[in-house]
Amino acid sequence: MTTISDIDLSDNTHPASPSFEAQFRAANEHARRKAQLTRLTLNILGLMLFIAIWEVIPRYSDWVNEVLFPPPSTVLQAFIPMLTSGEIGRNIAISLQRAGLGFAIALASGIMLGLVTARVRWLQYLTEPLLHGFRAIPTIALVPLCVLWFGIGEPSKVVLVAWGAFFPIWITTFIGVRDINLIYLRSAACLGASRRDTLLLVVLPAALPFILSGIRQSIAVSLIVLVAAELSGASAGVAYMMSQGHQLFRVDIMFIGLALLGTFGFLADRVFVALARWLFPWYAAS
């Protein structure tokens, strides 16, 4: 019969010993890091491969026109003076301001209206044909009208972005609030919660996963509508800069605009994901 004294406890590879756990932990951490590093390396490699091919083909092939398809080095050459002169920075600032303001208006009104239309039955029935009807119109179709109404100044851009970004937030808030699990409302009611607490601490957080997906869509929509609005007549902005490039037959400037827009979209989405994770730690995990 084996007793406890028969097991050699001095052996530090015994499964229960602390050093075995430490080893396991270190190995686990190492494997995780390695996987992360591999992924990052491949990410960067993919990007570099793309740039290299883009550089080589216009330069050394005779089936791609270098003027119509300028390689990265040419684009960079155009980019640096525009950056140092402050032209790029100014255009970025103006574009972001328009998109940001329009999006903020859409965020506030979308959540508020989504909440109200989902909670007040008669208001829902009263507004649903209108809201769904307007939602069906592609926002870009409203660009010419908006220019007529609000001119080519800032208001028309902000209004267009706000209009386009409103609908995804409104509809997801509406669905999230309408389909809230009854058990949450009942729990709040039998704990004696006030209307305000029920709305702010129960209904809104319960609908949050939906609302967040709407916000994410709206970020993408904001950028699309911004470009359409700026292309239709503006005196500054990233898309305006691109249309200038178009008129001057400067494809390199157009490429700079594309790269900037891609970077905005990508960064905005990343920031959104990081912010959501930080603000709502229960959401990603549950």
Partner: peptide, 27 residues
């Protein structure tokens, strides 16, 4: 419904966005 009659449900009815303490504090 009212706070003089507490209910414990079959399904999990805790608010997923609140910690255990915040859930208990809610009422």
């Amino acid at each position: 419904p009212g706070p003089d009659r507490g209910v414990v449900f079959q399904e999990y009815a805790l608010f997923a966005w609140m910690t255990a303490r915040q859930n208990v504090e809610f009422g």
